[in-house]
């Protein structure tokens, strides 16, 4: 037991752990187990039939590829935004800093409607895309745009504090020792922010997978092309098929969970390598 419960100078471990478990149960575990119970009514065979349906598989592919693309875009541009916000002083910086959080605060449906208005073939931005022969709204590209919008704060807000901790002197030291700009970035800055970047990436990714409100307005929702999995869940609910809906939800949950575990494992592996 002693190795399990290491002595700490801080009191209240039992109380705190008890509270943590109770809280997690109420907020996370009980709703999740309800998902399992609901799905159980159709059995394993029924579950398999639902989640391997053509449209479900196609929608999973759309959802996960679009979410991945959006998370990659956010990882790149989010890093740039965080960098600018941390390293430079310029007028209006506070406002830009606050702007980053806007996708958090905006109701997702509003975001979806605004984006659809902008990127529709007759919209402000959409008309220029249309001239280039690119359809943005009502295609998978529209989904990526919406998901990039809602995922931006995750990367910026996780990378920003870490970047603030990397002192500019370290970079100056590296430079004075003859490292080029690219070397400074690659050897000094990137290793420091990489874990935070990965966390931000996985948060943005996870958020994108479950996103419904903003996407349905801009996706076009065509089966096999731009239909996201959450929409299929809603469609099942509309037909009063609760078991089918929860089965798809469970499949999404499992896939997301495996992905998150993998990302965590990569992070753990990277931090160990770093430590050596």
């Amino acid at each position: 037991m002693s190795s399990f419960k290491a002595h700490s100078v801080l009191p209240g471990f039992n109380l705190a752990l008890g509270f943590t478990l109770l809280y997690l149960s109420l907020i996370v575990l009980i709703p999740l187990s309800a998902l399992f119970v609901n799905t159980a009514s159709i059995g394993l065979g029924g579950f398999w039939d639902v989640v391997t349906g053509d449209r479900v598989l196609a929608s999973l592919k759309v959802t996960f590829t679009a979410s991945f693309a959006a998370a990659v875009a956010n990882a790149f541009f989010g890093l740039v935004v965080a960098w600018v916000l941390v390293r430079y002083r310029f007028p209006g910086k506070r406002i830009i800093d606050a702007l980053v959080d806007l996708p958090f605060a905006l109701p997702t449906a509003v975001a979806g409607i605004v984006l659809a208005t902008l990127y529709a073939p007759n919209g402000w931005l959409g008309q220029y895309f249309a001239e280039l022969g690119i359809k943005a709204a009502y295609t998978p590209l529209g989904i990526v745009i919406a998901l990039t919008f809602i995922g931006l704060p995750f990367v910026v807000r996780t990378v920003q504090p870490v970047l603030e901790d990397v002192e500019a002197e370290v970079e100056e030291a590296a430079a004075s020792l003859g490292a080029g700009r690219w070397d400074v970035f690659r050897r000094v800055i990137f290793p420091a922010v990489a874990p935070a970047l990965l966390t931000g990436f996985s948060l943005a990714f996870a958020r994108a997978i479950g996103e419904y409100g903003s996407v349905i307005f801009i996706a076009g929702n065509m089966p096999f092309i731009s239909e996201i999995t959450p929409l299929l869940i809603v469609a099942k609910l509309e037909q009063y098929d609760y078991a089918g809906a929860t089965a798809i939800a469970l499949a999404m949950l499992l896939i997301s969970f495996i992905l998150m575990l993998t990302i965590n494992a990569i992070q753990w592996w990277a931090s160990r390598r770093e430590a050596r």
Partner: peptide, 11 residues
């Protein structure tokens, strides 16, 4: 011939 399938009539 349907380019967009919204989820409701108002949409």
């Amino acid at each position: 011939n349907v380019p967009v399938l919204d989820s409701g009539a108002r949409g």
